[in-house]
Design a protein around this nucleic acid. Structure first.
Lengths: 194, 194
DNA sequence: ACGGCAAAAATGAACGTTCATTCTTTTTTT
DNA sequence: AAAAAAAGAATGAACGTTCATTTTTGCCGT
């Protein structure tokens, strides 16, 4: 195997182990030694790929955030009609949160905790721009309520995080019907009433 | 001062310090020694009031959760009309999340992290029953959409957590108008359409 | 009202452990 | 065989918790 690929594999294994351990035990209870063990690597090797523990968790956050937004916008193009574009993005996000729920959970933990440096948090936010642009256009066309982006996000997207979390805790399971209901709630909370 | 009151004061100081330090630094970076210092107490004294660090954070969670729900339901009575009751609870919750945002932030961190024992988490959920009862009644009367409680919560209540968090990060500030818009979004996402 | 005393509460220092990180040596690659 | 990558053992600091003492409290007979 090529040298470069081996390096990439090792880095990925470390990121993967970080996600899994932080999800299950929390940041406070995931020592570098455990991360190393789960990635089949010596603790010292981590420091060839990352500066320190903080850097490891920051980079893991940015990696996962990029994966999330790539997934969300994969089939989207900025010229779609507003409602169609929103539905596509919403459903991709829902898909991601349910299929890659380990990753979504990790993001939820990072986003509600001071465990990520502010700089990395900002870096992560940037990738969401296409959705904000869509909303901007929607407001101009009179299709989307003229609300702050934060309020739109709070009502249209964020509920999915809560549902993902609840499902992960085993309290209930989202089926196709739930998801359609949730989408309707999301859309009706941001669309202009006629 | 009475002996009992002194004990209560000391316990409260410890809980308060825990909230503040965990909010600012995260659980992983708040040692018992710092909690003790902030509460003006010796580290050893903590162990007269709490079994260990885990017990301290569990009890802090339950305390704050109880305060939250007491606040939310303070003026509510179960015989109110559905919409009036919901508006009252919603606005009290919004009030709490904005005025006591340190406490709300602490809850958000606990709820997205494995830092609280499952048992204490369950304990905290119980207090929400009056809202679930109101929704139950609303569904029977055909005023509230017949959705799972989790979906109702996701769309009607949880967005407030996101807005509180965003505001706390300084990204934007919620004013009276925003709040009224948010309430309308919340209500319209759960009310039966006519 | 008060001095003295036993119990309770509180303390600071100490303990053993665990952790993030580094150092030295070994293994792998080119 | 030189250079790069990886390893395991070592290091020093920091942590949660406990221990031996000291301080405070509440109560008693006077």
């Amino acid at each position: 195997m090529a040298k470069l690929q081996k390096s990439i594999d090792k880095r990925n294994a470390l990121v993967k182990a970080t996600i899994e351990l932080v999800n299950n035990n929390g940041f406070h209870a995931t020592p570098m030694s455990k991360i190393a063990k789960m990635a089949n690597v010596s603790p010292a090797t981590i420091y060839l790929y990352f500066e320190n523990k903080q850097d490891l968790v920051n980079q893991t956050y940015i990696d996962v955030k990029a994966e999330y937004t790539n997934y969300a916008f994969a089939d989207f193009n900025p010229n779609m009609p507003i409602e169609e574009g929103f539905e596509m993005i919403w459903k991709r996000i829902a898909d991601f949160k349910l299929k890659e729920c380990e990753h979504a959970m990790f993001l939820a933990q990072c986003d509600n905790t001071p465990m990520i440096d502010e700089e990395s948090r900002q870096e992560g936010i940037k990738h969401l721009q296409p959705l904000l642009d869509l909303w901007e256009r929607g407001k101009k066309e009179g299709v989307i309520k003229p609300l702050s982006d934060y309020i739109l996000y709070a009502y249209a997207i964020n509920p999915l995080s809560f549902l993902m979390m609840t499902q992960k805790r085993g309290a209930f399971t989202l089926n196709k019907t739930h998801l359609e209901e949730a989408y309707q709630s999301a859309w009706s909370s941001i669309k202009m009433c006629k």
